[in-house]
């Protein structure tokens, strides 16, 4: 992770980006819809990757931050007619604040206890959305949300413009997260994941690094939540369901932890899979579980991780500089 990415590693992402840019006119509106959903979920999955992949912290409550972002859109636009320029910073800001509070609680624990606390906190957020009816309209959710009013020459009402809008949001999140994981701070996060005790005696304030990672992760997930509500035109407690958190966790595990693009790919796979099997909705959780077990057994490092390992095994070893 210290060296510059070799050029051939960039070929696949560049081709994928070109396809994503060029594809919309050729796609059915159904596929375009799924692709838009994938891009937004990819933001949330990549935000969780910062936590799970780079810090080694498995959160089962990531839907809470998505939810805060999404409800910010719902409440601010329906009550105050707030525009995108207000909603975006408020939504991301509230997600950061929620993560700053939840992080204080969750980071008191490690391992499976961390998982349990984040799960419990996620349920708290869901409970608030469900019960705080005066603010959230409870089970009904808030519907009829407009598309974002961005100062662009074309409207985002159509499926294709909104797709490009989601793509821009995805690229922004990817850029921010890419910079973070390749920064000295990102290196510190990986060190914490590998050995907290060694990091401590080297001079790192381990808790602080985890906390900052946790808060940033929540903020990015909140950004995804803002886009999600604008996309749906609706926000409700189902957006904060435990199954949302589980799906996001699976996107990361399936695509490949600590790769950013892997979780994005995982988001696409899960979103498409979910809709393809939607005829059998009852079995969706079963399929999720099977996919999870399959990932753990056959590709514990995820799809991108497995591909990288295979390509590294076939490539000649990188040249070592002279000592």
């Amino acid at each position: 992770m210290s060296g510059p990415a070799p050029a051939n590693r960039l070929v696949v992402p560049v081709v994928v980006l070109a396809v994503l840019l060029a594809a919309p006119p050729f796609l059915s509106s159904y596929v375009l819809t799924l692709l838009t959903q994938s891009l937004i979920y990819a933001i949330v999955a990549m935000s969780l990757d910062l936590l799970l992949g780079y810090l080694g912290l498995p959160s089962l409550g990531h839907a809470a931050y998505l939810g805060v972002g999404a409800y910010s859109v719902g409440i601010l636009t329906s009550r105050y007619g707030a525009g995108f320029g207000t909603v975006l910073p408020v939504g991301v800001g509230l997600a950061l604040i929620l993560a700053a509070v939840f992080g204080l609680l969750a980071l008191r624990a490690t391992g499976v206890y961390f998982l349990m606390i984040t799960l419990a906190l996620g349920m708290v957020a869901w409970g608030l959305a469900y019960r705080w009816v005066s603010l959230t309209q409870g089970d009904n959710g808030i519907s009829g949300l407009p598309r974002p009013d961005v100062p662009l020459p074309w409207s985002l009402a159509g499926a294709i413009p909104f797709y490009y809008f989601a793509l821009a949001g995805f690229l922004l999140a990817l850029g921010v997260l890419w910079l973070i994981v390749h920064s000295p701070f990102g290196m510190s996060l990986v060190g914490v994941r590998e050995s907290e005790t060694r990091m401590r005696t080297l001079g790192y304030h381990v808790w602080l690094h985890k906390y900052l990672g946790f808060v940033i992760s929540g903020g990015v997930a909140g950004f995804g939540g803002v886009l999600w509500a604008y996309y749906n035109g609706f926000v409700g407690p189902t957006d904060l369901d435990l199954s949302t958190s589980v799906e996001v966790l699976l996107m990361v595990a399936l695509g490949g932890r600590a790769t950013l693009l892997g979780p994005a790919l995982g988001a696409g796979i899960i979103v498409f899979l979910k809709n393809l099997v939607s005829v059998y909705t009852q079995r969706w959780l079963l399929i999720l579980g099977a996919a999870y077990i399959g990932t753990i057994v056959y590709a514990p490092e995820g799809i991108v991780g497995a591909v990288r390992r295979l390509s590294e095994a076939t490539e000649p070893a990188p040249a070592r500089p002279e000592a």
Binding site: G3, I180, F185, M187, S188, L202
Partner: peptide, 27 residues
């Protein structure tokens, strides 16, 4: 699981405020 150089980089940045920089690539 990290490379020899990354191990060393972690140790080198440990006592520097640089370890919290997240706006520039480590490279």
């Amino acid at each position: 699981r990290l490379t020899v150089l990354d191990n060393c980089l972690l140790a080198v940045q440990a006592l520097s405020p640089v370890k919290l920089h997240l706006h520039r690539p480590l490279g």
